[in-house]
Design a protein around this nucleic acid. Structure first.
Lengths: 222, 222
DNA sequence: ACCTGAACACCGTTCAAGT
DNA sequence: ACCTGAACACCGTTCAAGT
């Protein structure tokens, strides 16, 4: 894995630590992350990380910031690749958020818990980029007359809450990923068309429900 | 605070530990909880908790179970005190969940992370009670014809996602509690009437928005 | 400039021993 | 039956010292 006998003496330690930390958080959650284990994994003394991250929280903050940056890239890439139609691009954005949240739930949690910790200004600043995309898309929808009589800000908050909440339910094993994904698509379309998200059968959601035909909830009920 | 010189030798240790743990989690989160500090606080040796909780996780699980039980009580109390009208009772239930989630976010997180950990059967079982209430209320709504043409199961999942998501946004300081609470009421009513939750002005939500008049989001944007 | 090694104060867990 | 005290292996953080 290493090029020579002293692999991390030349400025790659910071990146190597972030890389190992990301894998550790992804697999075991931020709570389990151990600086000493990270240092061992990377082949460096336990005090070495201190040069790059003053303490454990600083490393977690850096990870959270990188997470928001990656989220922003993924959202914008998804929107750019969705073609010209406004609704397609909005669906692509919400799908990308849902996918990010479901694929890496521990990172998302780290991002939000890091954000509302006092003194984490850099983390708070990092959230502005992806949030700016949502705002821009809703402003565009308003201009295009795609939002009906709805208030763009209310639509934005409720859309975020719905997608975020459905992702949380998938994380908590209350609904299957595919079912929740179908509900995301459904909800977004209906937020635009003015229908209620709860009615059956939306453009792209039929197949997600279809064959299974049974219960939506996956948790045991009385 | 104590009756005599040996205050916790007679079976009250378990309750005292859970009580201290609940306060600690509520204030600093589950991650920060220290068994040794708890034992110190309660006035007992650091090994004493072991008689009642085999390890740290067992104490957290007991706390999660107690959390679901308390949630169930609060939901049912709220519904019972809301009068006879179906919609009032449904709004009362969602308000109670929102209130629980916003008032004690660290406990809620502990409850859900504890739930989807392998081997936590007792925690999984405890979630059935409050979820049963939601299911019963939607079944009643269907019988009463209050759900329009919507599928009760889809309405249930989406309502849960919306309320849970809005509570998460309050926790993350993305929206104010009052604004989110107004959106909860609004969304529930519109899930029933068949309107879209995003449109402006719902029965009980006007005042929550009103005076402030400004932005719904409370986080910095570009 | 970047990393090491020893030291300090904490932690969860275990286990023989006390009452 | 319930609790104590010592022990073990970990942890984050600090700091003088090495290259």
């Amino acid at each position: 894995m290493t090029v020579d006998d002293r692999p991390y003496h030349h400025g790659r330690l910071r990146e190597a630590l972030l890389d190992a930390a990301w894998r550790s958080v992804r697999e075991h959650g931020a709570e389990q992350l151990s600086l000493r284990e990270l240092a061992r994994e990377v082949g460096v003394s336990h005090a070495a990380p201190r040069r790059h991250f003053p303490d454990r929280q600083a490393l977690l903050d850096a990870l959270a910031i990188a997470g928001f940056e990656r989220m922003d890239v993924e959202l914008r890439t998804a929107v750019a690749g969705a073609g010209a139609d406004y609704r397609d691009r909005l669906v692509a954005a919400t799908r990308a958020y849902f996918r990010f949240a479901v694929d890496d739930p521990a990172l998302l949690e780290l991002m939000y818990t890091g954000k509302h910790r006092p003194g984490a200004d850099a983390v708070v600043a990092a959230v502005a980029a992806p949030l700016g995309l949502l705002e821009a898309m809703l402003a565009e929808g308003r201009e295009r007359g795609e939002l009906g009589d709805g208030d763009p800000e209310r639509i934005g908050v409720l859309m975020f809450a719905t997608v975020h909440g459905l992702a949380a339910m998938v994380k908590g094993r209350m609904v299957d990923r595919e079912v929740a994904g179908g509900l995301v698509d459904d909800a977004v379309v209906r937020f635009l068309t003015g229908g209620v998200p709860s009615a059956a059968g939306a453009p792209g959601a039929a197949d997600a429900q279809g064959a299974a035909g049974g219960a939506l909830w996956t948790c045991p009920r009385p």
